[in-house]
Design a protein around this nucleic acid. Structure first.
Lengths: 224, 224
DNA sequence: CTTCGATAACGAGTATTTTCATAGGTGATA
DNA sequence: TATCACCTATGAAAATACTCGTTATCGAAG
């Protein structure tokens, strides 16, 4: 799950990122409208946290840009004043939520969670795929009702697979969603094999079928 | 699916090609108007991604050239500025889509996909030809509802056949679409026979008719 | 200091693609 | 219809490309 935090106040940006990273999200940040629009153009995010007041422009314009590009990621507006007008405009142009500063990080986290879920799993916080059950709240994975231990990356991989089940997932897409800006210095994506292997092993050892099919030359497909 | 990426910025060109190749498209590139027009004259593409600002001319002229030649491939304009005028002119002269830089690789991918589909299969991501069903998302092929295993090349061949069903397909075109510029230094196209044979065999073994007719001296025709 | 997870490196194991040799067809021409 | 030149099909083997599993390294967290 990749999130772009658009916020010019350094301290706040830092704490938001620290908090959300600890929750297992992949965070990137932009400190200005310009930087935000650049990043939006190049990378693929699942969620945007947008401060309205930015040094070089209005955050609402960034949201317009996101929507104009047809990007599906959710949008949470963050604003210093509880301006009804901003709020209405924000929702009109397609943002999903609105948060007034100062806010609790746990509150922000809850909203991010709900958006990411809505986007990937139609709002549910529990995802079932045959004998595999994901609990998105606790990042817990059950196989036949028994919990198994996955590392962070393994969990991310599984979530990405399940939210794209049945589709062929090119190794690059997987890398981008689980690891972030891999493109920049990607000479070898070989380490993915190791993670796939470990994920597979843990699932199989726990009694699940091997739903991860290898698509030679392209990537993988998670399918029953 | 063959795509020509016309873009002078090396880095961008590279990432576009890397991304689209991973998605299973066959990409070639041109860094200037001159090069683009040369390639357009010689090879056959399904889709063109055209940067408007090029060192030696305007991308719109390339599009005019494409249309003047009666080439059917889709056109996606890419431009640094969101100029309404360019956009209108672009659509007027027959481009299919417009993308403002910097853009999202997955967004570009989505548009390419939609264009290729619109052209080949009228919008569906599932293509049915009698007892053969192609799922373009998962690259899966079903014969009478049962999945069969095709290798990458075999799948590409089948897609190209089905999207040109009823038409005679010269061996050259097939080679060009499935293998790309391989042609330039190919001394023999004999290996195609092997691939055709294997593709045929897998389809027939799975219970399909042999729709691949040989057209002596020219190539093949996929027809009921 | 120890443990754990993430990544790198590499050889072994597979799948795929190409080559090659040979056999079988096709169509034009006489 | 016989012949010839050329095109296509086939099976097996070689070459290549890709993936896997093991082990090693490194750094961060506890």
């Amino acid at each position: 799950m990749k999130i772009l935090v658009i916020e010019d106040e350094k301290e706040l940006r830092k704490s938001v990122i620290t908090y959300l990273s600890a929750e297992g999200y992949l965070c990137e940040s932009a400190g200005s409208t310009k930087e935000a629009i650049e990043k939006i153009g190049v990378y693929d995010y699942d969620c945007f946290i947008v401060d309205i007041m930015l040094p070089d422009g209005n955050g609402l314009d960034i949201i317009k840009e996101i929507k104009a590009k047809g990007i599906e990621g959710g949008v949470i507006i963050v604003s210093a004043k509880n301006s009804l007008e901003d709020r209405i405009v924000g929702l009109e142009i397609g943002s999903d939520d609105y948060l007034v500063k100062p806010f609790h990080l746990s509150e922000l986290n809850a909203r991010v969670k709900s958006i990411v879920r809505r986007r990937n799993f139609a709002g549910s916080n529990q995802v079932v795929f045959n004998e595999i059950t994901l609990n998105l709240d606790s990042r817990e994975v059950l196989v036949n009702g028994k919990p198994i231990n996955l590392t962070g990356k393994e969990y991310d991989i599984l979530v990405y697979f399940i939210s794209n089940k049945g589709r062929v997932i090119p190794k690059d897409s997987l890398a981008e969603h689980v690891w972030g800006d891999y493109m920049d210095n990607a000479d070898s994506l070989d380490f993915i094999y190791t993670h796939i292997k470990n994920t597979r092993k843990k699932l199989i050892d726990a009694g699940a079928h091997d739903y991860i099919k290898t698509v030679y030359g392209i990537g993988y497909k998670f399918t029953a």
